[in-house]
Design a protein around this nucleic acid. Sequence first.
DNA 1: TTGACACATAACCATACGGATATACAATTG
DNA 2: CAATTGTATATCCGTATGGTTATGTGTCAA
Lengths: 109, 109
Amino acid sequence: MTPATSTPDVYSAIGDPTRRALLLRLAAEGQKNVSELLEPFSISQPAISKHLRILREAGLVRSHKEGRLRLYEVEAASLRQVHDWVSHFERYWDQKLDALGDYLDRQER
Amino acid sequence: MTPATSTPDVYSAIGDPTRRALLLRLAAEGQKNVSELLEPFSISQPAISKHLRILREAGLVRSHKEGRLRLYEVEAASLRQVHDWVSHFERYWDQKLDALGDYLDRQER
DNA sequence: TTGACACATAACCATACGGATATACAATTG
DNA sequence: CAATTGTATATCCGTATGGTTATGTGTCAA
């Protein structure tokens, strides 16, 4: 019985530096196939495919076949939640330590 | 031979939902001691202490003793890099495909 | 001084993770 | 058709991660 394979969340998807690099390159250079994405790294093709799968399951990339290539592109709408979450802490790197920060905080949950 | 215990990076530190909840609460409610932080969770005190250590080593909290309590507070300057990184992808959730987005789109090989 | 409390650390365990190699399969090329 | 290329999946492996219980240490109260 295969145990349900829970979908990976966005935070852990971007926790890996290789996946961040993949995302950044896709954003900078647009669609890429697996071999192209693989090239700058010194890891195996299956390793990259695994990373791409995790990114896809986290909703961070999408892909489609074109001939015998599979093209990947960024689909980063789910990064918005990360952006929003991190923004709660903006006052900690902004100089202005306004007591206004307290207002942000009802967003808890 | 114990292998040097590399300092955890910010991305993996916030990859865990418990640690995100801790950070959010500290930001919302200010200083808290370990027992207070522990209370909403159904995990052990050592587990929380471990999370707090990881947050501390990632530069996300700091602490000081006060009597027999140890008070933790947010120290989230290092979240700025995350915020900046995520911002690279803003155009993927903004409706407005600004000039930068258009420019990048045309670079597609 | 003794005991209780607050917390950290140690030791251990199961599972997840990132990598490798081997293989399967679809699509193109000869 | 067979061979080659592009990619995914299967399997395995070592290490990291998140949890537990047990224990050590500092601080306060009686």
